[in-house]
Design a binder for these strands. Structure first.
Lengths: 340, 340
DNA sequence: TGATTTTTGGTTGACGCACATCATTTACTA
DNA sequence: TAGTAAATGATGTGCGTCAACCAAAAATCA
């Protein structure tokens, strides 16, 4: 009933522990014959190496860096808080996490931050990527130096990043459209779209997905050119208020970036009855969902994303497999009734 | 820059490692004075104990049991597969997991299974509870013996279970209603409800939530008495087909339990155009979402739930804190566009 | 005051694996 | 057949914490 150790395997296979160790860690100097003997013994005894003991013996410390925007958006302040949380948890498991907050929407800032870190960046890094050649280059450089790179929340697909931790943003846009489509009951009208910036791939992709569905399935609805809110509630409020005042035909709105507070304020001020889908789950959007100003909120769980990034970076650095189902980041839909 | 160990703390505090260990694990035999000396040294050096080393030294093996129904439903076969998966992962971390599949919908079977296990049940157990005094009693008995108990998917609140791993089912029902409300565009009509069994608290609660919202916000829609499908696709198909044939006024349907395949078949056979919200994410529901037979599917992620149950049971047995945000099980809404 | 308990603290060896060194055996080449 | 290379064993140390077993000091009692 007791745990079977490498000792037991050695005995059963008729070899020494040294050899078992060689097989276990894929070290050279073992004949094919012995390898299979050891393997069969391991299977027979159902040996599984003790992770805790292995970690301890290896004595390795993992060092990961998060590069995230310092913006005011509710989402990224949640992300930053979750990274702090992950730092505390990680320290119990030999995982040192550092977070660098950089000015938002600036590719240069990202590159500078990484350059400034130098060796100090550790074994791997999670980057909230901004579409730009400079960022792509720095990612590829890091990969060349053997540092593991994952993109986080916003991706740069055609770069050397090993993985993207985040949702399928095109799908998020499609979901927004297919919800809004059912929420809007008028026979025709305009749909407003509020985004953060054209340099954020996640925003562009959501917009793309949204338009796909809208164009294909809602010929009666006209999607207006998007408003760039720069992720700032103030800017969003101002621009959207102006648009609502000018255009009485607006029947629906999709806000796909930060600054959702501005959306809420503009709509409340205009006393508009339009259907609204947004992102960001904050106290403001919660309240707006309950009062009915907003109909649905599409979000990604920052705590899940941060934990996922850490797990993936760890798996990458020690070459262990990744549990895909655990790392799938969901597009979460919140309506009034499933608020957490 | 190196990791600070208990040795370092001992040196800094001017005591031995043994004393540090005593303080760390709240053992007796240390003067108040020394305790505070050690504490201040720990803070000064920012000491965090190494989990891997602690687990190794303690040499404890965790043993948990899952009691789950053996039914044919897509959801529970997913659950069973995930438990197998968790078993494999757990074995690397000194966590032995066993699964007992019992005949569905039978409280006696649950109680018998637990009785048959005896001591073999281990340190903790996760039970898919069925509303019944016998189950409540056995849970309380286990707690009395110091065995940790969590309910899983379906809860029994007024028992000694330490925690419930699952979604807020009343909220799930409410969500179903508020979605269906928007999907149905007719000025009036009947709403059909398909459930599994009245002895499953999760089903009863969903129904409750559904009715709450329907009654309060949809006076134009009439919720029919529910159909008991016994979680069997065949039964569901038969009963629902009959209902659809009899009642041409049905405009919407909420299927809140297993046997969703039966729902799909009945609707397709009847060539009905009604709006449909179901549970269970299987190949059948996926396809039905894509073809438009189903409008939305509300699910809980079985892999998340299983991992959560294991983490919670482990935390309970060694009295460590629980990360609430990680253990919150979400009500996931799937529409055609965010299928994974 | 000496004997005895209680409190307090130190020593030391697991725990299971990783890794390195050195010795020895076996296989293969020249 | 010597000479070299490859395969394997023997052995030891370290990782950080835990816990059992002692030793010393302090407090209590006769």
């Amino acid at each position: 009933m007791n745990r079977v150790t490498a000792q037991d395997v050695a005995k059963a296979a008729g070899v020494s522990v040294a050899t078992v160790d060689r097989v276990l860690n894929h070290r050279k100097g073992v004949s094919q014959n012995t390898i299979s003997k050891v393997h069969s013994a391991m299977e027979r005894l159902e040996f599984v190496r003790d992770q805790a003991a292995a970690d301890l013996a290896r004595g390795k410390n993992y060092r990961f860096t998060f590069i995230v925007p310092a913006g005011e958006t509710a989402f990224f302040s949640d992300v930053r808080r979750e990274i702090e949380e992950a730092r505390a948890v990680g320290s119990k498991n030999r995982i040192d996490i550092q977070m660098i907050a950089v000015p938002p929407l600036s590719p240069e800032a990202v590159v500078e931050a990484i350059d400034a870190l130098g060796e100090d960046i550790g074994d791997g890094v999670a980057i909230v990527a901004i579409e730009s050649q400079a960022v792509r280059n720095v990612i590829n450089r890091l990969r060349g130096e053997g540092i593991h790179v994952v993109t986080f929340v916003s991706d740069i697909p055609n770069s050397g990043r090993e993985r993207f931790i985040g949702i399928d943003n095109v799908a998020a846009g499609r979901v927004a459209a297919s919800l809004l489509k059912r929420f809007v009951s008028t026979p025709s009208g305009d749909i407003a779209v509020v985004a953060g910036s054209g340099t954020l791939r996640d925003h562009v992709e959501r917009r793309m997905g949204f338009e796909q569905v809208m164009r294909a399935e809602c010929p009666h609805l006209n999607v207006l050119p998007w408003i760039e809110g720069e992720e700032l509630a103030g800017v969003v409020d101002e621009k959207l208020s102006m648009l609502l005042a000018q255009n009485p035909n607006i029947v629906g709105l999709y806000s796909l970036g930060g600054g959702t507070r501005g959306v809420i304020e503009a709509i409340e001020a205009a006393q508009s009855e339009i259907s609204v889908v947004t992102t960001e789950l904050s106290e403001h959007t919660r309240e707006a969902l309950i009062t009915g100003v907003i109909d649905a909120v599409l979000v990604q769980d920052p705590s899940h994303e941060v934990r996922s990034a850490v797990r993936v970076l760890k798996a990458l650095t020690d070459g262990s497999p990744i549990n895909e189902s655990q790392e799938r980041i969901r597009i979460e839909i919140f309506v009034r009734d499933n608020l957490p």
